[in-house]
Nucleic acid binder design. Structure first.
Lengths: 234, 234
DNA sequence: CCTTCTTCGATACGCTGTATTGATGCAATA
DNA sequence: TATTGCATCAATACAGCGTATCGAAGAAGG
């Protein structure tokens, strides 16, 4: 189909003329900084270029498209991640999960970019290899079991961190914490509950224990690892 | 903070003048059709309005903002969902999961809109109530257990369906199936693997069994339900 | 019938990603 | 060295976006 090479194949162009201050790495760093500070939707080629004292089109010598820049950003985050560690497979899996979660909270745009197919940047590949290797070293021998464990974990991570980040964003947007929100954005909710049409929902809102995000995350992670563990013993 | 009422509170304005053909419902239906056909990124107020023979600003009598329209779309999808059924809690949970997944595959934009806080549309609330009720009726008594089950399931669903839809999109964008992709978009990947720097990754790509999306989904769902089940017995 | 007030929606603004293309600096040739 | 031709860069321009603004037009009151 497309035989245009991916970012990872196309080499960074050499600087031809004067000592221009631009480079792919500097562009990615600028984009990362901008995304961390103002959110991924604030990352426009114009703003990134402006942060580097350049016109928008200047960037197209280093990246082929905006999507490519986003891919480079994802890889840059993977480059930050320490390889998972632990003595048992369960520890390794948890370490993997915690590091990804931490990265997702550090860079709130990270998880949003993780839909679709797995990315293929060098740091991403290296992190994958390290994870596989650590899991095997920790006693998970079967390659199918290793892969399905990682896939299931990844899927859970995408959902969980996305939810958590979404919560953060909503809080920031409204200036309210979750509990405050329950009494402000949701007078409507309360009104609905008061109709008596949603008895169990009402019970849940009033009676259910409210866990903090970390607890929720650990809970789901625990379920998942327990389920995998059962399969291993079977 | 904002005391502007949410979509759900603000009533639809009455038609004042001539028999205008517009209504909130017609707008949402048009947006839904457009989103299904051309993707959520094609849903612009201009295009939705054009589909209804109106100027963009016309819509602002019925919706306050584009985000509101998206909320209405989400609620419209919930309105399609049958309430979860089943005799045991596990069946109910699986039914819930399958219906959400089906909706997410039917409307590929649906899951993308499910980040952040839970939505509060009437159909969404009704579906939540029905789910809670079905779980309790099927033997899950503890309200905390009910809530955490739903939350963990939801998180898994968001991640899993998102991944699956992302795969679809990538396939469509490249015109290639996953296996084809592994040999085309990823000659780069193969080159990387050939370096010998990623031995386990190479093994995984070549040797690991390739499950179809449904199998993957069921696998993760099974792990999760097994984990929850273990907690229940403890 | 005239005035006043409400409400509508066309126009316009500032933003996006990027195709096009005129300008620019470099290298090779006479 | 002077000149020509070319490769390459980045400014301008385009088509799209969400929505603020505000002139026009219809409804209600006297």
């Amino acid at each position: 189909m497309e035989d245009t090479p991916s970012v990872w194949e196309r080499p960074e162009p050499p600087e031809r003329r004067a000592p221009s201050p631009l480079s792919r790495e500097r562009i990615v760093r600028a984009a990362l900084t901008l995304a961390d500070a103002e959110g991924i939707e604030a990352v426009s080629l114009r703003k990134v270029a402006a942060a580097l004292d350049a016109g928008p089109m200047r960037l197209y010598r280093y990246i082929g498209t905006k999507d490519e820049l986003l891919e480079l950003m994802v890889d840059a985050v993977y480059a930050e991640l320490p390889p998972p560690t632990g003595s048992g497979w369960r520890e390794v899996a948890a370490s993997f999960a915690h590091e990804i979660r931490a990265a997702g909270l550090r860079h709130e745009w990270f998880i949003d970019l993780l839909d679709g197919r797995p990315r293929l940047g060098p740091a991403t590949l290296a992190h994958s290899e390290a994870t596989l290797s650590a899991l095997r070293a920790a006693g998970l021998e079967n390659i199918d079991m290793i892969m399905s464990t990682i896939e299931v974990l990844t899927v859970y991570l995408i959902g969980a961190v996305r939810r958590e980040v979404g919560e953060h964003r909503a809080e920031r947007a409204s200036g309210l914490t979750q509990r405050e929100w329950q009494h402000s954005r949701a007078p409507h909710l309360l009104a609905m509950l008061a109709t008596g049409n949603y008895p169990i929902l009402a019970e849940a809102v009033h009676d259910a224990q409210h866990r903090d995000p970390s607890q929720k995350f650990e809970l789901g992670l625990g379920y998942l690892l327990d389920g995998i563990s059962k399969r291993l013993k079977a």
